[in-house]
């Protein structure tokens, strides 16, 4: 064997050890990913019953918090409608000069916390009163209009504390005699929605943890049944990433498939309760249509499923791969 040939062999070995192999690393990386993705899919298809059971359990775990999220979304739509009805009435001082009134209205209209300002003059107020209540006899005996001018404002803010703050500011206005706000129901509904929102987050955390453990356990079993394969791979030079990649894809697939099934479950449940909800709203004279999971919600569901599946697989595979 020639000296040059020997040198070449030594350089070749050294270059492989330094990971400077001539093959395109990006291409091989992509090929390895593609292969791992196919192998993982094949692994799931080859064990249809156990895979389906895992997917169903993940789907139920995801459907519960996301179903609650849809209900929350609907509750928010309801509160938004009610928020529109939340108005603060400012009763102006009697005999308020026109310039003072105009200044006040201008001030209110330029306030960023106020969505709408409506002025009801004493004459308009009296006219409305005459139409709505049978007090014609009493009013005719009055020498002058006893009603003050009223400014009805609709706040932009919905959070009760912010509405309170706006209410207090309105009370301090010099042109205003008194201020009224009926917020009891609004507050109750707001805090109910907040309670449900926190419940959703708590459920998402708990069931998310459940998904991580379900996927983790499934991957752990898959790792045990592939222990010889992993051992051989490691013996011939597979790195940790190569070994764990198919299992990470498996976790990802489980998460995404579980999310897909969860979406179907939530969709079916919403469809099922939409008719009675519509009937209930109609009985109150409303026309409420139940909202379904919107595109952002669907994307979030799939994203959460994929991430949880991946985390579960990653946790299971981390210990096992290091052990070999």
């Amino acid at each position: 064997m020639s000296k040059i040939w020997r040198k070449y062999r030594l350089a070749e070995l050294a270059s492989i050890m330094k990971r400077e192999h001539k093959n395109n690393r990006l291409v091989s990386y992509l090929i390895n990913h593609f292969n791992a993705a196919i192998v993982s899919l094949d692994r799931i298809i080859c064990t249809p019953i156990s895979s389906l059971l895992t997917i169903v359990v993940i789907a139920i775990a995801l459907a519960l918090p996301f179903g609650l999220a849809v209900l929350l979304q609907n509750a928010k739509v309801l509160t938004q409608n009610w928020d529109k009805g939340t108005q603060i009435s400012l009763y102006l001082k009697m005999n308020l000069a026109e310039t003072e009134k105009q200044t006040l209205l201008q001030q209110l209209r330029s306030d960023s916390n106020i969505a709408n300002v409506q002025y009801i003059s004493p004459e308009e107020g009296l006219e409305t009163l005459q139409k709505s209540v049978d007090v014609q006899g009493v009013l005719k005996q009055l020498q002058e209009n006893p009603l003050p001018g009223v400014v009805v404002i609709t706040p932009k803010v919905t959070e009760p504390r912010a509405v309170d703050s706006l209410f207090n500011i309105m009370q301090q206005l010099s042109a205003v005699d008194s201020v009224r706000l009926d917020r009891t129901w609004f507050e109750r509904l707001y805090y109910l929605v907040e309670f449900v929102r926190h419940g959703f987050l708590a459920l998402l955390f708990l069931f998310g943890l459940g998904v991580v453990f379900i996927v983790g356990n499934t991957i752990r079993l898959a790792l045990q049944s592939s222990s010889k394969e992993i051992k051989v791979f490691k013996l011939i030079g597979a790195n940790d990433a190569y070994v764990r990649r198919p299992f990470l894809y498996t976790g990802l697939y489980y998460g995404v498939a579980g999310a897909g099934l969860a979406w179907v479950i939530v969709f079916a449940a919403m469809l099922w309760i939409s008719v009675p909800v519509h009937d209930l709203a109609a009985s109150y004279g409303g026309d409420f249509i139940l909202q379904r999971l919107d595109i952002n919600g669907v994307l979030t569901l799939f994203g959460v499923g994929a991430v949880l599946g991946w985390i579960g697989a990653r946790l299971a595979v981390m210990k096992h791969v290091r052990k070999n």
Binding site: K18, K234, I236, G237, A238, D240, Y242
Partner: peptide
Amino acid sequence: RSGVASLRRA
């Protein structure tokens, strides 16, 4: 660990 894998591949 990655060095070990590279060596074994070589």
